[in-house]
Write a protein that binds this DNA or RNA. Structure first.
Lengths: 200, 200
DNA sequence: CTAATACTAGACATTCCTTCTCGTAATTCG
DNA sequence: CGAATTACGAGAAGGAATGTCTAGTATTAG
């Protein structure tokens, strides 16, 4: 993984970062269509060629700018304390906190547009975004099943999908206070754990 | 709600329909960004002015084209047979069938882009789309609670959100055979009804 | 018949994405 | 050190799409 030395001037990491930061600056106030390559270059203080040297077009640039910020978040970890209910709550609280920031919601929506702006493979991008969450949830739920904390025979994939879907739904529909989202997420965990039906 | 007669030539419903149909024709093979106003006009055999007379910009046009097709579906009804588990299954099976068509997935994704393509109020659009589902689910779940089929104290809003979110997640990520989606949806209903935790 | 609106067709300005050119700077290899 | 190679900022230029506008015709109410 070490960089093989090549002839010629190396690319500047500062330039790279400045570009991504400029894209995000535009996204938080405008939308995907407000990201103009000229504007990005000026805002970052770089030439347009430095953009196209790194990304083939606008969509992947915006996608990387969003994913880059997303990857810096450390609030998405799904702990394994042995208490599955508490762990699910912890994960969902992290999601709620992320969704509570208008900045993050704006970035996420821009990613949706970037994915659709055809040169990108939408499936791949969404999978890249949701995949780690899905895997982590599935792994944790499977562990809980083996530990005897969850009954056997449950479709854990379906449960993981529902948990991710609930957060996704919140991203796209309501921008609400964190407390409200957190409360509903807690309610979801309770409903999931105990079940809806009346105990016999 | 009756149309008040106004002087001048009335707008043609045929023109209206032809435009929406042309947009959908483009969407099912391409994506949101392939919808060019010029192209739509030519395909529909109308002048561009007829587009801009009805919609202020591209995003609302695409949104209406999708919503129009969506509204013609009758498979989204949530029955009330008295058996809440069966009714939830019925509703989710309808969703699965809808998602089984690549055409519908393409249209739904386009709507997601149109909503995020900032000139529109994305919140309002999603609410318009998901709102009826949310209301129907909440109403049915509340009824089941009163009937004693669901225990009291459950956050029904959270459950409704999770059900809608699960379908939304499927729209945006995997395009899978109907049977698989149906199976996971059934698994979700089971998990929700019985609960994850081991019965004491 | 007159006023008002819708219709197709197409020209037009504007904006934006993308490619290209220029002169300069940084780095590797001989 | 010097030649080759790549990156850099600045900006010009082509091509495509959005959204506005005009022209001439059609359809409706009064």
């Amino acid at each position: 993984m070490e960089a093989v030395p090549r002839p010629g001037r190396p690319r500047s990491q500062a330039t790279h970062d400045a570009i991504l930061e400029a894209v995000r600056d535009i996204l938080v106030t405008g939308g995907y269509s407000d990201v103009a390559m000229d504007h990005v270059a000026n805002l970052a203080g770089v030439g347009k060629q430095s953009l196209y040297r790194r990304w083939p077009s606008k969509a992947p640039l915006v996608a990387e700018a969003v994913m880059d910020a997303y990857g810096q978040n450390r609030q998405f970890e799904l702990p394994d304390t042995g208490d599955i209910r508490a762990d699910l709550r912890t994960w969902l609280h992290g999601q709620a906190a992320y969704l509570g920031s208008p900045r993050n919601v704006a970035l996420s929506r821009a990613l949706a547009v970037a994915a659709a702006d055809n040169s990108l493979d939408g499936d791949a991008l969404y999978s890249q975004l949701a995949g780690p969450h899905h895997d982590a949830l599935l792994h944790r739920l499977t562990g809980a099943t083996h530990a005897g904390d969850i009954r056997a025979g449950v479709d854990l994939e379906a449960v993981a999908d529902a948990l991710i879907g609930a957060t996704l739904y919140r991203i796209l529909t309501h921008v609400r206070p964190v407390e409200e989202t957190t409360r509903h997420f807690d309610g979801l965990v309770d409903a999931l754990m105990i079940g809806l039906q009346v105990p016999k």
